[in-house]
């Protein structure tokens, strides 16, 4: 009886220790690393970094394919946080990928809007509300200020403003 308990107990203990040792020895879990980098990015999904969104950019950083200074909406704050996570030295934002302008929010000039729906289609976070030939409006809480809706607007009625409280 005691032998049985001892055998099963020590087997369990040995296997547990061996597994946790193996887990510590193996290369870092890329999936968790991606998730942790992704959590530091501003989630604007703007694609200014050259990737389709924040998560693909985080994956590229985790794989070592992308530099950490490509996120314009995040600016120095984001670069510093990612650099700290990865143990790299922070570098200034690469101007190729745009300039940092602080937290932005899109505003539609409702007098000029013709209700064409083009900005709805490009919005990565579905923050624009509208129907065909009715004027559209931006849901401020959801808007990430990604600038993607500016270019498709045929009457240039969308502008970006600094978010209130972040002047």
């Amino acid at each position: 009886m005691i032998a049985a308990v001892l055998v099963v107990g020590s087997l369990t203990a040995i296997i547990g220790v061996a597994l946790s040792l193996a887990a510590a020895r193996l290369p870092a879990d890329r999936d968790t690393l991606t998730r942790r980098i992704d959590a530091l990015l501003p989630q604007t999904q703007c694609g200014q970094c050259g990737y389709a969104g924040c998560r693909p950019y985080a994956e590229a950083i985790a794989n070592g394919d992308a530099a950490i200074n490509q996120c314009a909406p995040g600016g120095d704050l984001t670069i510093r946080a990612v650099a700290e996570l990865l143990g790299q030295t922070p570098r200034p934002l690469n101007p190729v990928y745009g300039e940092h302008r602080g937290p932005l929010v899109a505003t539609i000039d409702e007098a000029a809007c013709i209700g064409c729906l083009r900005c709805l289609e490009v919005c990565p976070v579905d923050a624009i509300l509208g129907a065909p030939r009715h004027l559209h409006t931006v849901l401020n809480d959801l808007c990430t200020g990604c600038e993607l809706c500016i270019a498709p607007c045929p009457v240039d009625c969308i502008s970006l403003e600094t978010r209130a409280g972040h002047a």
């Binding site: 099963v8 087997l11 597994l19 193996a22 193996l26 870092a28 879990d29 890329r30 999936d31």
Partner: peptide, 18 residues
């Protein structure tokens, strides 16, 4: 079963990471 579970766990995180 203990041994099998450990082997599966090992191959699980090997696969997840690689």
């Amino acid at each position: 079963i203990l041994v099998i579970a450990a082997a599966v766990q090992f191959s699980e995180f090997m696969l997840r990471r690689t």
